[in-house]
Structures are given as structure tokens and as C-alpha cells.
Design a protein around this nucleic acid. Structure first.
Lengths: 333, 333
DNA sequence: TTGTATGCGTTATCAC
DNA sequence: GTGATAACGCATACAA
């Protein structure tokens, strides 16, 4: 920078002002400075700028696994929107372990990030105070605590699952299986969606049956395995509500392996409406959780907090606008 | 840091030495320092450290679109492996535009990154000198220039497509369509895979037919559209080689829509072996390009260059070990 | 409109 | 083993 200043015959401060578009700088000097910058190939040193300004222009995004379509889609959106706001995004993968989710918070305290978007699946009430860090955090996911102690963006898990299940029942299913409720754990997405499933059964006057609710992880392999378990158990079923689309994709695979046709023999619905859902064979009915709106809300909350425009004790909650997208797997077009 | 020093009754230098595990520090003082760090909740300021040390601990990853399964998988691997090496990863999405690919290089000159992994699809020979920046860069993708002017990690595009096509022919196909060759553009993955396709036809003594080669983008929608074009044209075909798995997934969708059964009526093969390929209905035969090996090679090259262990003028090229994975879509298990 | 002085938090160097 | 000092490159505050 000082070299540029020398070359342009001005002080470093003027160079800084030109670079940042600050202050009143005469047209002539600005041109001279810009020319010198160009000639010398000068680039600002972001480390120095960060040190001085106290902010990094980087936000962290912690997700379980960016390879999963749902999180990939989310990350793509966040990176784009954040970029438009002048932020770069560092992606951390937590592998859905509590340890790594806390680790993301710890890293953030390294002041590497101006803020953190944490897609949490394992953090519970006992970790809530960890979130009350000095650093702006927005949690993407389920309710951690009864009271809002953190800005949070969620989706309509209960309602979405309820509608999907209701839809299957409406289409004639009487024995609807549910795939994905996590083993006895804290109330994560799986448990909430399971609650919605049960609500729909209740409303329709159908009995809830333990043998129709299969606990499994959220991967395609898990979904396929769950269906195999179900089939092996001999429990009859005519519909399957999957708590994620990846589970559903695995389920479709396993059903096909066993010679069952969707939707003729069994109806299938998923959750998340990943891009893929429109391209499975048959295409997959799914609950669209309002990704874009969620991302926008999360970034708005985060940037407002970074800018200090928010009360430290007032926390906001946003729930995405969900919508059931009916496709072939439940007899749609 | 100075507060920690004061609290521990030592100098800041000693704190620094403790934090970095440097030098000889007596057991007693280290304990005292660590205790103070803990009590005061001190965290190093990475901005200051970067300013002082000249490195950021961050590498950039520029991909067309992280939402695409292939790149998502790649990113997940890179983030993991880079993390193990002590690097964080900033993901940039270029949207497969030349402008943004060059933009990633420009950003990197902001010295935000210690190095950059650039998954390039649009950069051509005329941009080669841009790559010869002061910053360590590894290109993931096709050959840019005749000579190696940059470290590069590629996959066996020609050979992989040749094997996939050969496999279809071996299974009895006589009219194999190819989906994905990009419109007349520079030699990217599409063109190379198209070359492999043609090689296999030649070797089998089958004629290459223009009407069987459909140019299209790499998305699921593109694949579906391409099949519709093919069917609408009335050109008979008994096999389809898709230049990416996403194209193949779209193709499966469109074939099903038209009442064609895979593999009974048509055989289908893809390229990339994304996780998804094992879960389509029918499951998808695909060319596995050796992702893990490619990622390891790229990170090795990059870290070596960052460490200065590489000759500025000697550039390395690595090609992943490919392998055809046969699944149901070509009559496999 | 432009320049000067100062300090952000760290670490390398060298002296003790 | 430990500490004092300088410097990394930039931007704020204020002076000119």
C-alpha cells in the first residue's frame, strides 16, 4: 500500500480512502491511485483489514454433511445469498455429532467468523448456554429450549408430516408406515415429524401401530434398510411416509427390489422436496419446507445481529412456509 | 493475550509460545498460562496471526454449483481432508461461467486463501496465464493447455466413456445414443467423453450417427429433455451413454415417462458414480472416476506448493483411477 | 481534500 | 527458560 502511495505521489491514507470509496477524494488523485494500484497489482490484505476493523467478512456454515442433497441445496443457497451480501462462507461438516456441533461454536470463537449458521441436530437444552456466545449465531433446526434463547429458523415439521400422512390416508391408505424417527433421542426433526404422522392417524381415526414406525437414520441406505426390515417383519402396509427424501429414495429402491410397484401397491411420500424428488422413478411426493424463505430469514437475522441492530436478549423465530408437492409416488401427475 | 500474560505473571511471548507449543516452556509456567487462558476464555485472534504469519489457514474451493451431487460429494471430501490438514475451506460457486471462474482467481489474490482448488469448466487456453498467479492453484478438470503450466487433477474422461460405451455394446446394444456433449465448445469433460464414446463405436465397427449424439447440459432436467428430443425424433436406439449421472437420472425419468423399461428396452449408463447411482430405479451403471484419489492428489499438490516444496516451473498432472460399476440399468445385479 | 500518528493482536528475533 | 521490542498492513481520529 505504501508502494502504491509512493507511486501515486500520495499518502497511504489516500490509497485506503480510494480503495474503500471513502471520504472526499478528488477525481484526479483517485485516477492516479487506481492507476498505480493497477500497475503494481496491489490487493488489499484482508488479514490486516480484519485485524483493524474487527470483522472478517466470513460467516461459518455448520451442517451435518454437505453431500446430503438437502444440505447441499441449503449450502448452495446460503453461499449465493451471503455472497450477494458481501460475505464469504466457510463450510464445516459436523457429521451430525454433538461434539462437532459444539466444535463449530468453538471455532467461531476463534473470531474467524463474523457469524455462524448452525444446522443443529444433536444439540440439546443442556447446550443452550453455549449458544449464548458473544458471536452472532442463527440456529437452523429444531427448538433447543422452551424459550427463545437464540435466533432460530425452523421448518413446519409437525404440520408437514401431518399433511403428508393425511394425503396418503386421503388417497386410500389404511396402514401407513413411517420411516425415520430417530431412536429415543431428543426432539429433533425425526421426532417432530413422527408427531405429525401420529396426529394425522389420530385425526383419521386410524390406530398408531408400533410395528409400522421404523426408526432409522436419514440416508438412502437407511431408508432401503428400513423397508427391508418392514417387509421382513411381515407387517402389511399400503403407504410409507418418509421423514426425508433421501430415506424415500432408499425406500423406493428397496420396494422395487421386492417387486412392489409404487403407487399401485404402495404409496410413498418424502420430506424436504430436494431437486432429485422430481426425477425419481416414480417421481416423489414431498413436503417443500420453504428453503429460500428460510435461508433469507437466517441471513437477515444474522446480518442484523452482526450489525448490532438487534437486542441481545430479544430472539426471533421463523418457520418456513411449507407446501405438499404431489407427484407420481402418491398417484399424482 | 496481554491480559492472560498478566494473569499468569508472564510475558505475552510466553503465552504465545504456550499456545503454539513452541520453544522450551517449563511445565509449571505452561500450566499457569493454560489455566489463565481457560479462566479468561482467551482465544487467539486469527486475523492478527494471519497478518503476522502471512498465511490464513484457508483454502478456496471454486466449483460450478455445490448443489450438484458430483460437486457436493467432491466438496464434502475436500472439506474433510483439508480439515484434517488444518485448513478451512471457503466454497465459491461459479455457476460454470468463465467470468466467475476468473473471479475466484481474483479473490484468491486478495490473499484470503493460502491456495485455491479450481474446478474449471469454462477456462480455456487464453486464460492460462491468469493461472500463473503468485498463489498456489490446483485445477480440477480438463486440460487447459497443451503443456502443463499448472498443477492439475483430472479424470479418465475418454477412457471411462469408452469403457461405458463398450460395455453397452458388449451387452448387445447396436444403436447407442450419447447424451451430454456440450455445444461446439472447448474440449471440456463433455467433449472428451464424447470422444471416448466415438472410440468405442469405432472399435466395435459401429457407425457414429449424428442423430444419436444429443448435446445437452449436465442437469437432470437436461437429461430428461435430451431423451424427449431423441424419442421425438423417431431415431431408434437401444442404449444410452450419459456423460454425467445427473443426466442419466433425468434420462431414466424421461424413459419411464414414455413407457420404456430399463434395461429391457434400453440400457443406460452414467458417469461419476455419485452415491445416488446405487439408489435409482433401476440402479445405475456408472463410471467411478476415483474421487478420493483425486481429492488426495489435489490436496497434496496444493499443500506442497503452499509449503514451497515445489518448483515454480514444474507442474504435476494426476489422473484418477477409473472403474466401471455395473448395476441394473445395464443388466447388472 | 490530504497527511500524520497510532494501535489492532501476534510472533520472530535476539538479549537476558 | 523467559522477556522486550519491532513489525506485519490497514483504518480511525484528528490535524493541516
Amino acid at each position: 500500500m505504501s508502494e502504491v502511495a509512493k507511486a501515486a505521489g500520495v499518502s497511504v491514507m489516500t490509497v485506503s480512502n480510494v480503495v474503500n470509496g471513502h471520504r472526499y477524494v478528488s477525481e484526479a488523485t483517485r485516477d492516479r491511485v487506481l492507476d498505480a494500484i493497477d500497475r503494481l497489482g496491489y490487493r488489499v490484505n484482508v488479514a490486516a483489514r480484519s485485524l483493524r476493523s474487527g470483522s472478517t467478512g466470513v460467516i461459518g456454515l455448520a451442517v451435518p454433511d454437505i453431500e446430503k442433497p438437502y444440505f447441499g441445496q441449503l449450502a448452495a443457497l446460503i453461499i449465493d445469498r451471503a455472497g450477494a451480501l458481501g460475505y464469504q462462507v466457510v463450510v464445516e461438516q459436523t457429521g451430525a455429532t454433538r461434539e462437532n456441533e459444539l466444535g463449530a461454536l468453538a471455532h467461531s470463537r476463534l473470531r474467524r467468523y463474523d457469524g455462524l449458521i448452525l444446522s443443529t441436530v444433536r444439540l440439546g437444552d443442556e447446550d443452550a448456554d453455549q449458544l449464548r456466545s458473544d458471536l452472532p449465531v442463527v440456529v437452523l433446526g429444531e427448538r433447543l429450549t422452551g424459550q427463545g434463547s437464540v435466533d432460530r429458523v425452523a421448518m413446519a415439521n409437525v404440520e408437514g408430516a401431518r399433511e403428508a400422512t393425511h394425503h396418503l390416508i386421503e388417497r386410500g391408505c389404511r396402514r401407513v408406515a413411517a420411516l425415520g424417527a430417530e431412536p429415543g433421542s431428543r426432539p429433533g426433526a425425526g421426532a417432530l415429524r413422527a408427531a405429525g404422522y401420529r396426529q394425522a392417524l389420530d385425526e383419521a381415526g386410524l390406530p398408531w401401530r408400533a410395528e409400522l414406525q421404523v426408526r432409522c437414520g436419514f440416508s438412502m441406505a437407511d431408508g432401503a434398510a428400513a423397508v427391508r426390515v418392514l417387509l421382513a417383519s411381515g407387517t402389511p402396509f399400503d403407504g410409507v411416509v418418509c421423514f426425508t427424501d433421501t430415506i424415500a429414495i432408499g425406500a423406493l429402491r428397496a420396494l422395487a427390489d421386492h417387486g412392489l410397484t409404487v403407487p399401485e401397491d404402495v404409496l410413498v411420500a418424502g420430506f424436504d422436496d430436494v431437486e432429485q424428488a422430481a426425477y425419481t422413478v416414480p417421481s416423489l411426493t414431498s413436503v417443500a419446507p420453504g428453503h429460500a424463505e428460510m435461508v433469507d430469514a437466517a441471513l437477515r437475522m444474522l446480518t442484523e445481529r452482526i450489525a448490532g441492530h438487534r437486542d441481545a436478549d430479544a430472539h426471533e423465530e421463523f418457520t418456513g412456509p411449507h407446501r405438499l408437492v404431489v407427484r407420481q409416488s402418491t398417484g399424482g401427475p
